[in-house]
């Protein structure tokens, strides 16, 4: 597999007052195309710093970052903007959805920046939401959704532009265990099926085991960089997703919708029954009562 992300002697030093904080010390990395790469380490070890630098959100103190052969570390802001539009997707720990926009509009946002027409991008956004099992939520605002749902919108937004690389900093940090697993599995499936390089920061060792590569940081140094073979990865994933059934989120939503409809029909049938019984009650000496009952039955789809 060709190398997708490469760093050379990547170094980041923060100056806090007179003190120097070495967040990253001379890091050399290679991440291959289509790899699921997990960055782990203790708090303060430099995971976020590394990810931000890989994504070009922050300039290194020294060294080089190249994505797909392009020197990201040397681009100016506008070049980076275009590069991100075309090649990168982002998933944030705190979702970072725009509150005034609906789920679909949020997902379509990166496409809007590329100048795509509203009709076209909304279509793609809705498709992407369906993949995330949120087809029914396209018109909802973020405040009307749960955390897990919001993060699924955030994931749809990262995938909508068909990027080469997706960066995710603690994407499941705000979610409960079950949702975490669900969301994680969806992300992996979507990334792998589109051959997208996926770089994820997490502080949970357990979660990182699902990747092709696990990079462990400590005090700004890479202390381990292990590439898992397929068998180990499969075993790890089976263990991680043991509690989840096989269904995809989309299938799940369809199923839920069916349940809901059945429930509604059941409620309706009950109501009709109720009407009929009421009409049959002897003390209701109103012959029109029966007509009402019939009209109600007539409405039954």
């Amino acid at each position: 597999m060709p190398v997708m992300i490469r760093t050379e002697q990547l170094r980041k030093v923060y100056r806090v007052g007179k003190e120097k904080v070495v967040a990253l010390a001379n890091i050399d990395l290679e991440i291959e195309q289509g790899e699921i790469c997990c960055i782990v380490g203790q708090s303060g070890s430099g995971k976020s710093t590394l990810l931000n630098m890989l994504a070009g959100l922050e300039k290194p103190t020294r060294g080089l970052v190249a994505i797909n052969g392009k020197k990201v570390s040397a681009m100016d802001e506008n070049q980076l903007a275009v590069f991100r539009q075309e090649n990168l997707g982002f998933i944030f720990q705190s979702y970072n959805l725009l509150a005034q926009l609906t789920a679909a509009e949020n997902v379509a946002l990166p496409l809007m920046f590329t100048g795509m027409s509203r009709r076209k991008r909304m279509k793609r956004a809705v498709y992407e939401l369906k993949q995330m099992g949120l087809g029914k939520r396209a018109g909802h605002k973020p405040t009307e959704m749960s955390g897990g749902q919001q993060q699924r919108v955030g994931i749809a937004r990262a995938f909508v532009g068909k990027p080469q690389v997706i960066f995710a900093d603690e994407p499941t940090g705000n979610l409960d265990t079950h949702t975490t697993r669900q969301v994680l599995r969806t992300m992996l499936e979507r990334a792998e099926s589109h051959n997208i390089t996926f770089v994820m920061v997490t502080h949970e060792r357990e979660l990182s085991s699902c990747g092709d590569r696990i990079i462990t940081l400590q005090d700004g140094h890479v202390i381990s960089n292990e590439k898992l073979d397929e068998a180990t990865k499969k075993a790890n994933r089976d263990a991680l997703f043991a509690d989840l059934d096989e269904k995809t989120l989309m299938a799940e939503e369809a199923e839920q919708a069916e349940h809901a409809e059945q429930a509604q029909q059941a409620r309706f049938a009950e109501k009709v029954m109720h009407n009929v019984i009421q009409a049959d009650l002897p003390d209701t000496q109103n012959p029109g009562g029966n007509t009402t009952g019939e009209a109600g039955t007539g409405q039954n789809p």
Partner: peptide, 8 residues
């Protein structure tokens, strides 16, 4: 967020 998502 908009900048990160590629807004010029």
């Amino acid at each position: 967020v908009m900048k990160v998502l590629g807004c010029k």
